[in-house]
C-alpha cells in the first residue's frame, strides 16, 4: 500500500478526493451562512445545534485532517514538479490551448486560502463570545460577531480578495479532480467543466455577498 501513497497517481487521487470533499464542505458551510442576511435566529440556532452536538469534534478532526492531507500532498507534488525540471527554459511560451490563469496559479491561490482559513478560524471560531437568549436558551450570538467583523472595510476587502482566490482555485480544481480520479468522458466532461465554473462563482460569490451585505448594513 505504501507504494500507492508515494506514487504520482495515488497521491493525485488523494489530492483530488480531499479537494472534492473540501468543495462539498463549502456547499454546506455556505448554505448555513446564507441564513445570516435573512434569519438571525435560525442562523444562531443552527450554529448552537452544530457546536453542542458531541459529533462536532469528530467532524472537526475530519475536516482539519482533509485540509492537512490536501495541503501536504499539494506541497509534496509541487516540490517534485519543480525538481523535475532543474534547468528552466530560456524562453517558454504556453500554447494558449492548455494552461489557464486558474490552473497556473493553483499554488498561490491555495496559499492565500490557507492564510485566510487560519485567520478566519481565529476571528470567528475563536473570536469574541457574545450571547443571545431565544426562548430561554442562551447561545452564542455568532450573527452579531459576523456583522461586527464585516463592519470594517479592510476586513471586507480581504475577505473578498480571499474568495477571488478561492474561486480561481476551485475553477481549475473542481474539474481537474474528476480527471485525476479517472473521469473523462467525451460528452460529460464538458458538463463537469461548466459545473466547476458555476461552482467556483456561486460559492465564492455567495460568501462574498454575505460580507458585502453585512458591510452595507453598517454594523450590528
Amino acid at each position: 500500500m505504501a507504494s500507492y501513497f508515494s506514487s504520482s497517481i495515488g497521491r493525485k487521487h488523494i489530492l483530488a478526493f480531499t479537494g472534492l470533499a473540501l468543495c462539498g464542505f463549502l456547499v454546506t458551510h455556505l448554505a448555513a451562512n446564507l441564513l445570516i442576511p435573512f434569519n438571525p435566529q435560525a442562523f444562531n440556532t443552527y450554529s448552537y445545534k452544530l457546536i453542542t452536538n458531541p459529533l462536532i469534534y469528530v467532524a472537526e478532526v475530519g475536516l482539519v485532517g482533509l485540509f492537512l492531507v490536501h495541503v501536504a500532498l499539494a506541497f509534496w507534488l509541487n516540490f517534485e514538479n519543480r525538481a523535475a525540471r532543474p534547468q528552466r527554459y530560456v524562453s517558454k511560451k504556453n500554447t494558449g490551448r492548455g494552461t489557464t490563469p486558474s490552473s497556473a496559479t493553483m499554488v498561490i491561490t491555495g496559499l492565500v486560502t490557507l492564510v485566510f482559513l487560519v485567520l478566519h478560524v481565529m476571528n470567528i471560531k475563536f473570536g469574541a463570545h457574545y450571547t443571545v437568549t431565544y426562548d430561554g436558551v442562551e447561545m452564542r450570538d455568532l450573527h452579531r460577531l459576523v456583522l461586527e467583523y464585516f463592519s470594517s472595510l479592510p476586513n471586507v476587502i480581504w475577505y473578498v480578495v480571499a474568495h477571488v482566490a478561492l474561486a480561481l482555485h476551485t475553477c481549475h480544481g473542481f474539474q481537474s479532480a474528476f480527471q485525476s480520479l479517472g473521469f473523462n468522458h467525451p460528452r460529460y466532461t464538458a458538463c463537469v467543466k461548466a459545473l466547476g465554473k458555476l461552482y467556483a462563482v456561486a460559492i465564492a460569490g455567495g460568501f462574498a455577498f454575505i460580507a458585502i451585505w453585512a458591510y452595507g448594513r453598517g454594523g450590528v
Binding site: S8, R11, K12, L77, G98, S103, H172
Partner: peptide, 22 residues
C-alpha cells in the same frame, strides 16, 4: 509502467493539458 515513470524522475500531472496542445 507508472512505477517506472515515477522512478525516472518525471513530474506529476496538474491537468494543464499543455501536453495535448503540444
Amino acid at each position: 509502467m507508472v512505477d517506472q515513470m515515477d522512478k525516472e524522475g518525471f513530474g506529476n500531472c496538474t491537468n494543464h493539458y499543455e501536453c495535448m496542445a503540444s
